[in-house]
């Protein structure tokens, strides 16, 4: 698959997206899926309408801020946990299990907990943090272990301490993996923020999505969902670029 990542892959990708758009548009126009499935042009027009700019602007601002805070805290905690696992091998196995179990908890089941522990405005960021932490933890702890036996041997013979090894060998070796983890964590944080909003945050894309679902505001529903997807895709693409940069520096 890597060989076709270049020219032809990009072309196929463009064609694929265009085909998707055409199918969406014609399905919407023909109305085969009913009145709740608008053509893509309607949704884009609705999004571009200046009348709704403040509404969408405030919602995006709220969701983005929750997702970004969650992303930052979640990644920081994940990297901290992975680092302590790398420095304290005895604790690592239990830590891996702990993180995997926490990740397997359905995010929505955490709602009641966060409503008790935090305010309703804090819940989106907290769930976003939990959602973002897992891919970063997996990537970082795998990255710290991703050193060759010879490298470890050379460091041992050169009399490196645990911290020097972490700083000069394990951390640089883990950076590409961590960048990849951050890339996967970005959409996860957006999803977490939206789920958190469903537990009663005052505003945000998630609120907009649910309220327009309940009030049959079809164009607004689709437009909000599209915005959520766009935020997620942009973050994904940005961190993808970061990852490629890190890989070019490290490898």
């Amino acid at each position: 698959m890597k060989s076709q990542t270049t020219g032809s892959g990009l072309m196929y990708g463009a064609i694929g997206v265009v085909v998707l758009g055409v199918v969406w548009e014609s399905a919407g126009r023909s109305g085969v899926l009913g009145t709740t499935f608008p053509p893509v042009s309607d949704v884009v027009t609705y999004l571009a309408d200046p009348a709704y700019r403040t509404l969408f602007g405030r919602a995006v601002g709220a969701t983005f801020s929750s997702a970004a805070r969650g992303f930052l805290y979640g990644s920081a905690v994940a990297i901290l946990l992975a680092t302590s696992g790398a420095v304290l091998p005895a604790a690592k196995e239990g830590m891996d299990r702990f993180v995997a179990s926490v990740h397997a908890i359905p995010l929505i089941a955490l709602g009641p907990l966060f409503i008790v522990l935090l305010s309703r405005t804090g819940t989106p960021a907290a769930i976003a943090g939990l959602a973002a932490a897992f891919p970063v933890y997996v990537a970082a702890s795998a990255g710290f272990d991703d050193t060759s036996q010879t490298h470890r041997d050379v460091f041992t013979v050169m009399g490196s301490g645990r911290w020097s090894r972490l700083r000069h060998l394990q951390v640089p070796a883990a950076l590409p993996g961590i960048a990849d983890g951050l890339r996967l964590a970005a959409p996860a944080a957006v999803l977490g923020a939206i789920l958190g909003e469903w537990f009663g945050a005052p505003r945000g894309i998630g609120i907009l999505i649910v309220s327009s679902m309940q009030n049959f505001q079809i164009n607004q529903l689709w437009a909000s969902a599209m915005l959520a997807a766009l935020i997620s895709l942009t973050a994904f693409a940005l961190f993808g670029a970061l990852e490629r940069f890190v890989v070019s520096r490290i490898r």
Partner: peptide, 23 residues
């Protein structure tokens, strides 16, 4: 070639957040 890019894009979209639309 046509399906993969679409699938990759949709994979990075939080589908769970799209539940209301599908509903």
């Amino acid at each position: 070639g046509l399906l993969t890019p679409v699938a990759v894009i949709l994979r990075s979209v939080p589908i769970v957040a799209m539940v209301p639309v599908l509903a």
